[in-house]
């Protein structure tokens, strides 16, 4: 019993977090994983355990975002968007925020509390709905259309055969 209660306490202290982030588009694609690993190391250092992640992919932003770089405001229309899901003590998440704030490669980030399961909607739901929305073909109409030209073609063939025979 005593063991169970301690296990529960540990679970209560740990919270599942997700960080969504934009890496500035000026970073080379080859260097992206190295830049993300800096954040991952920080998470590990603070006692976090990575659960799920998606590596940054280039997306065009819905509106242009600005970032102060050495006293100059720079505007960005695209960025590399990725996310990390991890488990961590509530007390340490502030340190992660600080790391991200200080990182100049990160254009913007969002830390949210979430659940262990994958919260994204499975692809099949989206595709199934698209198929439903698409206009359905009318097979009966097509069949009748096909039948008439077929008979015409038959008649034409017959005529050509007759012509050949005459020759």
């Amino acid at each position: 019993m005593a063991e169970e209660s301690t296990a529960e306490e540990i679970n209560e202290e740990k919270t599942i977090y997700e960080i969504g982030f934009h890496v500035v588009p000026t970073v080379d694609e080859g260097e992206l994983s190295a830049r993300v690993s800096l954040v991952k190391e920080a998470i590990k250092k603070e006692g976090g355990v990575l659960i799920m992640e998606e590596s940054p992919k280039k997306i065009s932003l819905a509106y242009s975002m600005s970032k102060m770089e050495s006293g100059k405001r720079t505007m960005f229309d695209s960025a590399y968007f990725g996310w990390l899901k991890f488990e961590m003590d509530r007390d340490n998440i502030g340190n992660i925020k600080r790391v991200l704030d200080e990182n100049n490669d990160i254009l913007r980030f969002l830390i949210i509390k979430t659940v262990r399961e994958d919260t994204r909607v499975p692809r099949r739901v989206v595709t199934a709905q698209k198929a439903e929305a698409a206009p359905k073909p009318k097979p009966t109409v097509k069949l009748t259309k096909k039948e008439t030209p077929a008979s015409v073609v038959d008649a034409e063939i017959d005529r050509t055969i007759e012509e050949l025979i005459v020759e």
Binding site: G20, W83, I112, T119, R120, V121, V126
Partner: peptide, 14 residues
């Protein structure tokens, strides 16, 4: 209807 338990901000299509 679609048995979606969590609404994720990344599912922009939905």
């Amino acid at each position: 209807k679609n048995n979606i338990k969590y609404i994720d901000y990344k599912d922009t299509e939905i």
